[in-house]
């Protein structure tokens, strides 16, 4: 089939950037979206032009590297997939397709469709973990966990950190991402000791970055390739409120 692509080209962060138009003559319906771009890039190189830079790695929807807007929707219109898993059978001959990078203040553009998502890492550094020294764990079966809780935790733990939620939120909020980690760890017995501190640190770190706040628009949930529920945001708010309103826990134990 034939396609017309309008692709955002931007040489570097300082460049203003603009859309460029490419006509594709012979796109197979079995191709993945990224394979379609691969073929275009091979043509561009042959013509002496620079290929379109886009992030990708595993190409099976799990590493979270890829992601851009396809006709204004993060990862395209198919539900529950990343753009590397989007196949061309969902397009038809003559379609015009607009491709542009994540647009969010917290994700500056590096080049073409590649953005800087290091703000996510900084939030995780602040508290997205359970502190456990290697070698100190009890037997794995020491603490039973209901299947209900573990499956619910897994629903949140599936987050791949792609950034589609931020790019789709009118406020550029990272709350689905942060809420997913807080909910994942907060649903497990192992996550309880640091639960309050984690919520406080991660929310504070999030607010230090250029993310906006949640206004329950729910665009994040609608585009999330792992279909993560905004109930994670509610859990985050609950944990955060509890610690923020109560103030720091008083030190216990004898002072010497």
């Amino acid at each position: 089939m034939k396609l017309t692509l309008h692709v955002w080209r931007q040489r570097n962060p300082a460049d203003a950037g603009a859309f460029a138009t490419y006509e594709l003559e012979d796109v197979s319906t079995h191709m993945s979206f990224l394979e379609m771009l691969d073929v275009l890039n091979q043509d561009l190189i042959a013509k002496g032009e620079e290929p379109i830079a886009f992030e990708h790695d595993c190409r099976e929807g799990i590493c979270g590297s890829c992601g851009f807007m396809v006709n204004g929707v993060a990862h395209g219109e198919q539900p529950g997939v990343t753009v590397c898993q989007l196949h061309m059978r969902h397009f038809k001959d003559g379609d015009e397709v607009t491709i542009e990078p994540w647009r969010a203040k917290a994700f500056p553009i590096i080049k073409d469709l590649v953005v800087d998502r290091s703000a996510f890492d900084r939030i995780m550094h602040a508290g997205g973990f359970i502190t456990v020294r290697t070698g100190s764990a009890p037997d794995a079966n020491a603490i039973p966990i209901t299947t209900e809780n573990v499956e619910h935790a897994m629903d949140f733990a599936e987050c791949i950190g792609c950034g589609a939620c931020v790019a789709s939120c009118p406020n550029g909020a990272a709350m689905l991402f942060v809420g997913a980690k807080i909910a994942h760890l907060g649903l497990l017995p192992q996550g309880q000791p640091e639960r309050a501190a984690r919520a406080l640190r991660m929310v504070e770190a999030m607010e230090r970055e250029a993310f906006g706040a949640c206004s329950n628009f729910r665009a994040c949930e609608a585009v999330c390739p792992k279909e993560i529920s905004i109930s994670g945001i509610a859990r985050m708010n609950k944990d955060f409120r509890r610690v923020a309103l109560a103030g720091p826990a008083p030190a216990r134990g004898k002072r010497r």
Binding site: T134, A137, A140, N141, I145, T147, E151, A157, L188, Q190
Partner: peptide, 23 residues
């Protein structure tokens, strides 16, 4: 190998469990 599973559970890895709550 056994210590790995212990450590991973302590890290909060949601391994599949039986209905009794065990791995």
């Amino acid at each position: 190998s056994n210590a790995i599973i212990d450590h991973c559970v302590a890290q909060g890895i949601p391994f599949a469990r039986e209905y009794g709550g065990y791995l």
